[in-house]
């Protein structure tokens, strides 16, 4: 297994500019509270207790966030929302979500260039290097539960992959707030055992049943096919330090924060061999700094307060790189091969 470190100039303020981000978060918080307290009316919105998909045990309540109860698995230290809505309810909610529309129409438009530069461009390079290394003859790339249609277009425009599709289990497409061109749309059944490269960008943290999704991933991959996955981990610096005070912890988008241990075992159990598991996140240290600055009453963390007051940019920079090197950043990426 290997671990990758990225050195670039990604800044949080570029991809989450204020005050727009605060506005987006306020809408999110409101919706989150209403879905967890039951005041949003959708079908099957019943909340069900959720066991750790890695260990099979009920996790232990740790903190509340925006109406959701976060619990920690005592065995593998993953952070899981429980009880939680089922996938259907989540999908139904997303179609109606005001936060989702705000994201699409306002936020994404305002940060498009920064995301293009800071996220999509490196992501495309990454996919190309995966193709070069592990699947030079890859032809079918499927992006499961696509969030960014523009990224799909960039993937097509690269001319490297004959077939690029967006896999959406929650058809019909017309109802989705997602501008995917018709020729790129597909349902999972169309690609069973046919996908050369399957991408799950920020998916397993926001689905109701992540174990099921990994199982489906295996069914979708052709023999020797490659699974590419990004997610957020509870082992990362940001969540280790801030827990429920982590500023980007939105229960509807981050329902499952697996520890690195748990993620490794889950992917293995689903029938994949992990080729790379990295945490190339670049924002943990900056996020913690910002949180400590804006919330002087946050308990503990006196070592870090001193650190941010006195140690300077070089120390912060080397810390972030250390976190990346030793899989301690919160942003995780995985490349695995179907066995």
């Amino acid at each position: 297994m290997k671990a990758v470190v990225l050195r670039d100039d990604l800044r949080e303020a570029d991809i989450r500019p204020e005050p727009l981000y605060a506005e987006y978060k306020a809408i999110l918080e409101n919706e989150s509270r209403r879905i967890f307290d039951g005041s949003i009316r959708i079908e099957n919105r019943e909340l069900l207790p959720f066991d750790c998909p890695n260990c099979g045990k009920a996790p232990v309540a740790e903190f509340e966030r925006w109406g959701a109860q976060y619990c920690r698995c005592a065995t593998c230290a993953s952070l899981l929302v429980s009880p939680r809505p089922g996938q259907e309810a989540l999908d139904a909610f997303r179609r109606e979500s005001r936060a989702g529309r705000f994201w699409e129409q306002t936020f994404a438009a305002a940060t498009g260039a920064a995301r293009e530069h800071g996220i999509f461009r490196p992501r495309l390079q990454w996919l190309l290097s995966i193709k070069d290394r592990y699947g030079p003859r890859a032809s079918v790339v499927a992006d499961y539960r696509s969030k960014y249609p523009t990224f799909l277009e960039a993937l097509c425009d690269s001319g490297e992959f004959p077939q690029v599709v967006s896999l959406q289990p929650e058809a019909p497409w017309e109802k989705l707030p997602l501008a995917v061109r018709p020729e790129r749309r597909a349902g999972p059944e169309a690609l069973l055992h046919r996908t050369d490269i399957l991408t799950l960008f920020e998916v397993i943290e926001r689905v109701s049943n992540p174990g099921e999704v990994l199982h489906l991933a295996r069914e979708l991959c052709a023999p020797g096919g490659v699974l590419v996955l990004t997610t957020t981990s509870s082992s990362g610096f940001e969540y280790q330090l801030l827990g429920g005070s982590a500023p980007n912890l939105n229960p509807l988008d981050r329902m499952n924060l697996f520890s690195i241990d748990a993620l490794t075992r889950l992917i293995g159990k689903a029938g994949f061999e992990i080729l790379e598991l990295s945490t190339p996140g670049r924002l943990d240290v900056a996020t913690v700094r910002k949180t400590l600055e804006s919330d002087p009453d946050l308990p503990g963390l006196s070592f870090w307060r001193y650190f941010f007051r006195h140690c300077g940019e070089d120390a912060e920079h080397t810390l972030q790189e250390f976190l990346q090197q030793y899989r301690l950043s919160s942003h995780v990426r995985v490349v695995a091969r179907r066995q």
Binding site: M1, K2, A3, V4, V5, L6, R7, D8, Q325
Partner: peptide, 10 residues
Amino acid sequence: PEETITYYDE
């Protein structure tokens, strides 16, 4: 230029 660094464990 920006670098990508890969560390190998085994």
